Every structure is written in C-alpha cells, then in structure tokens.
Amino acid sequence: MSVRLGSGGFGSVYKGELENGTIVAVKELKIKDIHEHEKEVVPVFEAFHHEVVLMSQLNHPNIVKLLGIIQNTTKFVMEFVTCGVLSDRLYDEKQEDLPMDIKKKILVDVANGMNYLHSQNPPIVHRDLRSFNIFISSYEADRLVAKVGDFGLSFPCPTELQDVMPTWQWLAPECIDGFSTYNEKSDLYSFGVVIYEMMSRQMPFTDKEEFITKIEEILSPEQLLNEAFLKQLEGSGFRLMDGKAVREEFQTQTIKTEIVSNGLRPTVDPSWPPLIQSLLNDCWSASPDSRPSWTEILDRLS
C-alpha cells in the first residue's frame, strides 16, 4: 500500500498493487485507533465484517467491486476507480463545471447502481448516498463509468435502524432525527440531493445563511507565521480570511426542524434545465410515496 486515498470512522483507504501489477484500493481497519476506543471494538469489527459480507454479494458495473480480503488482517481489497470520488471534482474551485451530458451520464450510472441494490432480495438500502461515495472512472464521455461505493452503513430492507446519521444534509425528512426506519424511498431523497450537488457545486444548505453562524478568531502575527498552527486550524474546519480564522457552523437543530416541519430544501436555480428541476423536486418530496422509482428516473434521464 502506498498513497492514502481517504479516511473516515475507524478506517482508511489506500492505493495498492497486486503481484500481477493490478492497481487496487485497500480498506484497512485501524487497530491503533480502536485501542483508544475499547468500548467500540466489537461494533466496529461487526461493521467491518458486515461491509465485507454485503459487498461480496454484489456484482454490477455501477457498484464498486470487492476483490477479496487479506487473510489474518483487517483489510479488504476493492477495485481501484481512477478519478476517485465525485465530490473531489465538484468542490474543487479550480476545476471547470462538468458539461450537462456528463452530469446526466453520471446520474444514469448512479441510478442504475441504486436500482440494482434495491432489486436485491431483500432490497439493500445504501443510507449514505452522496457525492463523497460516488466513484468516477474518467470524466471523458466515452470512458466514464460512475460507481456507488462505501457500504459501511448499508443494510437489507426492511431494517429497524432508526439511528441519527451525521450527514443530515442528505437525509430524507422522515429519517433526519431517527423518527422513522430507512427504506428505498430514503435513498431516492438522497439521490435528489446528489443532483443538487452536481448542479450547484455547493454543499447542501450552505446557501441558507440565516441558519449559519460565523465564528471568527483574530490571529496574531506569530500565529499567522506558524504553519503547524495554521494546519491545525484548517483541520478543525477554519479557513484563513483577512488575518482571521473563520468557520461557519450550521444551527443544526433549527435547520433540521425547518427541513422536517416546513419543507426547507436547498435553493434550485431557475436556470437549470426543467428536467433537472422537476426531478429534484420529485426526489426530495416530503411524501416518500411521491418520490419516483429508479425506473421512472432512468426513463426521464434517457
């Protein structure tokens, strides 16, 4: 293993190479981290085992493929997807916006992958569909394949899970505070938020300034010259602006209430294609039964 591709929870993903020269992605459970959270050892190992077992049952061109496990370790091997996650491209201000035909191709691939998950017996609910878990092979039209990945939170449906997820910006209103169980309709709502991400290139709800608190800290000249200190600030979510460390925080409970009770959604730009606007509004309908099926979504995108 060499380059770290990403990390989260108790694990990291690295770029690796097999003996035959095949480039792969290796997910490793961090034992060192677990020792600092001994009470969580069993559930973390169970989650790791759960993800491996679930991925071993999946085989579809729009799903990241499990290649195997490394015996006597806490590592498993997946196919390497060349361009990484979609969020890296969307939120990189140096990159140009994607052409509409590329956006539609990505959405079609994701819809196909999700349709496959929901067609299993029993259906598999992803529960964490967002641009950070969509992997892209290439951004050239003739080579582009989008794949849904990261199944650590996925479960067969029906599931009794009613846990509160930290990624509430992508959650369906009925699941946002753990009041309802997750099902296929929850993923359809998240797909609508992914459409918003692709069109706006903004994190969901960051346009709602009335629900955001800005925290500012004036830095001394010594602090401004201290690279280690500045890196630590950046890791805590601050950015440097006019000699100040600035961080914006959601008024989380207030905005959650607005989403659930008053139908608050990210702002749709009226200049977006009518097809996209209507699909967005249908996917993030407050009524789960009003959300379109994957078959209908694919028909509308074709």
Rank of each mutant, 00 (worst) to 15 (best):
S7C: 11
G8I: 15
F10I: 08
S12V: 11
V13P: 09
N20L: 01
G21A: 09
G21R: 02
A25I: 00
L29H: 04
L29F: 04
D33Q: 12
K39S: 11
V41P: 06
A47Y: 02
F48C: 09
H49M: 13
E51T: 07
E51S: 02
V52W: 10
N59I: 01
H60C: 09
Q71F: 12
T73C: 05
F76M: 01
V77I: 15
M78T: 13
F80C: 08
V85S: 14
S87D: 07
S87T: 11
D88G: 05
D88K: 13
Y91G: 01
K94H: 11
Q95N: 12
L98K: 10
K103R: 15
K104M: 10
G113E: 02
M114H: 07
N115D: 15
P123Q: 09
I124D: 00
L129A: 03
F135L: 14
S137C: 09
S138M: 06
R143D: 13
S154H: 04
P158Q: 10
L161Y: 11
P166I: 08
L171M: 15
G178T: 00
F179Y: 11
S180I: 07
E184H: 09
K185M: 13
K185N: 10
V194W: 02
M199K: 08
Q202E: 14
D207A: 08
F211E: 00
K214T: 15
I215N: 12
E216R: 12
E222T: 12
L224R: 03
L224S: 05
L224D: 02
A228R: 12
L233D: 07
L233S: 03
E234C: 10
G237M: 00
F238S: 04
G243P: 10
G243T: 08
T252M: 11
Q253G: 12
I255W: 09
I255F: 10
T257K: 14
E258A: 14
S261K: 15
S261M: 15
D269H: 11
P270W: 00
W272N: 03
I276A: 12
Q277P: 02
L279S: 03
L279A: 06
D282V: 09
C283H: 04
R291G: 04
S293Q: 00
E296Q: 14
E296T: 11
E296H: 12
L298F: 04
